[in-house]
């Protein structure tokens, strides 16, 4: 089960639609990192509205993916964390998810747009920011 990754200008959009096995989660991580590298995406929005369980493993995959993306040069924003998922994650303890979160994909794109513009480190090509 592959997670589709959609390119929108300088940003990649991902919506995780099904509960992933551990292997599928790692495959997703690898695919996404490869796509970021290929496309030199500056931002990635990952929507997890459909995930009704995020355990410590999935939380770690999300955190690691975000760290890897940052190392390549892309910002990551997570959207759609379900209230009960948030509750369970916080009760389990610690900072299990350590990535910027917003309510929905639209806000994720806005946030990425702002942070990419603020970076202003991509060769002064203004078109880059108008996606």
């Amino acid at each position: 089960m592959k997670v589709p990754i959609i390119r929108l200008g300088k940003v990649l959009l991902v919506s995780i639609q099904v509960d992933l096995t551990d292997a599928a989660a790692l495959q997703f991580q690898e695919d996404l990192i490869n796509r970021i590298s290929e496309t030199e995406a500056l931002g990635v929005a990952i929507d997890i509205t459909s995930l009704d369980v995020v355990d410590s493993y999935m939380a770690r995959v999300i955190n690691d993916t975000a760290s890897m993306a940052r190392l390549l040069g892309a910002e990551v924003v997570i959207s759609g964390v379900q209230p009960f998922v948030a509750l369970a994650l916080v009760e389990m303890g610690r900072e299990l998810i350590n990535v910027d979160c917003v309510f929905n994909l639209e806000q994720a794109l806005k946030k990425l747009e702002v942070s990419i513009a603020a970076r202003g480190d991509r060769g002064g090509n203004r078109d880059t920011y108008e996606w």
Binding site: Y57, L87, A88, M92
Partner: peptide
């Protein structure tokens, strides 16, 4: 309720892993 369902599902996921 949904909160308890999610707690249990998350707990089972941890233990099964």
């Amino acid at each position: 309720g949904l909160a308890d369902q999610t707690r249990l599902a998350t707990a089972v996921s941890e233990l099964a892993r």
